[in-house]
Write a protein that binds this DNA or RNA. Structure first.
Lengths: 201, 201
DNA sequence: ACCTGAACACCGTTCAAGT
DNA sequence: ACCTGAACACCGTTCAAGT
């Protein structure tokens, strides 16, 4: 019975991240401590430092996981829908809001990371990739004549601001409960009006 | 020279809040410690507990200050502008984004406070009052026929989501730098399109 | 009423030493 | 390569005691 565990249980790094995400969701960001994580996993309190030089490094890695999961959810949502901008936007909005309410603390972490130059390059890249997907959705819609012309970056930011604002407000329980997730369709309609092509076609 | 200071410098509670806001802005939320605050103010590390039972209590009070300052800024912005919804929205948007970029960490704090039932009643009330002002702006605009009809709460949330999303993204440097604050007018135009009255008048 | 000083249990980080 | 154990400087919180 020597395969039971080599030194600990195989992949401390991954275990730390999974456990960190759990406690983040269950007990909030304030309760996240390296020492408790180590305790939960049955290793010494100094062990995590082999895998994350810093507590911040762990948080960065956690945010990275978040962006990965989010990108995945968005991609999946896009696969199961039609080609029109309205449909793709609706699917994306649903996926984003679902992610935000299911993983509110993680989303918070993803955006509380100051995107300063010295922040993890991987992380910036992930955030970058994420916004680029947003942009390509807009560019496509412009090509199809379903979104007004002009800088896709500007339009993308407007759309994304609405989505992001709604999702974070929903995630922090700052929305009147009766308005919550049901009428996402209304939000989508509002966004569509905001970026609809000019009438004089 | 006995008036120099009574016991310390008069109003520790206020001093703690002011200093806390400073360090929040200058060194971020992670650097905010009761003990350092006490050190900065030249009192013992146990002194703050007379005024805030908890670190969380201080954070709540800080968030409350934030809502106060924000409401003030918004009111001031409204006073210096015209009566049309477009003008009032533009002024409000400018004030909100300015607040968010000037006091990013504070805004973060204000919305990271879970608005749970047991959260400070004062705080919930402040947040409430703040959204109500938003709503009255919408109701007014509806009366003037400048905003589409329907639940003012729903429209308000749409408008506020866009503003809040934009402001927080700007505050966390998640916006392409070239898009930043200049074209707030474009954002306002987008919002106006989103909540404009139906064409069939 | 307001503050101090000591005490307690907890952190993050580092570093020699073990396997 | 990966982890331990002890050490250090820092926390938040509490509580008797001082003025």
């Amino acid at each position: 019975m020597h395969t039971r565990r080599r030194y600990h249980h195989g992949d401390l790094r991954a275990a730390l991240l999974t456990r960190a995400e759990e406690t983040l969701r269950e007990k909030g960001p304030a309760a996240l401590s390296l020492r408790e994580l180590a305790r939960d996993l049955g290793v010494s309190h100094a062990a995590p430092s082999r895998h994350f030089k810093d507590k911040q490094a762990l948080l960065d890695a956690l945010a990275l996981v978040g962006f990965g999961r989010l990108a995945e959810a968005m991609a999946a949502a896009q696969r199961g829908t039609g080609e029109s901008f309205a449909e793709r936007l609706r699917a994306g909005a649903r996926a984003y809001v679902d992610f935000a309410t299911a993983d509110a603390e993680l989303l918070d972490l993803m955006y509380s990371i100051k995107h300063t130059p010295e922040a993890s390059e991987e992380l910036s890249a992930a955030a970058q990739r994420w916004t680029e997907e947003m942009m390509s959705l807009i560019v496509d819609a412009q090509r199809r004549g379903e979104v007004r012309e002009g800088s896709p970056e500007r339009v993308g930011i407007e759309v994304f601001s609405t989505l992001h604002g709604y999702a974070t407000l929903a995630a922090s329980d700052s929305l009147p409960p009766d308005v919550c997730t049901q009428d996402l369709d209304e939000l989508v309609a509002y966004i569509l009006r905001g970026c609809a092509p000019e009438k004089s076609a």
